[in-house]
């Protein structure tokens, strides 16, 4: 039973006819041509398929596409399209990623964390990224960079407020 769904994908409304057993990951990659969510395990273990669903980091391989009808989905394609975000810039500057296959998921999980908790502790960062497997980096540079970006944004914010007032 094919059903049409409409989602707000990276800010644009996209429609697709999907079967009830199609995962969000397959629809994103196969029907919308959005390729940054990767399939690493197909069973929710690795987090390479992470996307933001109404702002929350979720595994798109565990979600059926018909479930997200009417919701907002953000993939890495929708992050820093015009200009890389502070997080992306810091990841580049610190030579954080190696093979880069986990990067889309890591960046989205980090972004979701910082949106909800702008000043996380190291343990909170590790907790938030524990669902995203990386075999190359040993996680250390990823965790430290997320912490550094959080710290920097804390310093910036009061100044920005003063400028506005």
């Amino acid at each position: 039973m094919i059903q049409e769904i409409a989602i707000r994908l990276n800010g644009e409304v996209r429609r697709a006819a999907v079967a009830p057993n199609e995962t969000l990951l397959d629809v994103l990659r196969g029907k919308f041509g959005v390729k940054t969510p990767k399939e690493g395990c197909g069973r929710g273990d690795c987090g390479a398929c992470t996307v933001l669903l109404d702002g929350k980091a979720v595994r798109s391989c565990l979600i059926l596409a018909i479930e997200v009808d009417g919701q907002s989905v953000v993939t890495l394609e929708g992050v820093g399209r015009d200009k890389p975000t502070a997080l992306q810039k810091a990841f580049v500057k610190n030579n954080v990623f190696q093979c880069g296959f986990c990067a889309p998921g890591m960046i989205l999980s980090s972004a979701a964390l910082l949106a909800e908790n702008p000043q996380p502790t190291e343990h909170e960062v590790r907790e938030a990224l524990a669902g995203n497997l990386c075999r190359c980096t040993g996680y250390e540079p990823i965790v430290q960079t997320v912490l550094a970006v959080a710290k920097k944004s804390a310093k910036k914010k009061p100044a920005a407020r003063r400028a506005r007032s």
């Binding site: 390729k35 990767k38 890389p84 990623f97 889309p104």
Partner: peptide, 21 residues
């Protein structure tokens, strides 16, 4: 020198393509 990776930006923006992409 610790030059910035030549593939750094491609990997954080998702421009980097893997076979299945």
């Amino acid at each position: 020198n610790s030059s910035v990776r030549v593939d750094g930006l491609a990997k954080v923006t998702g421009a980097a393509q893997y076979v299945d992409d």
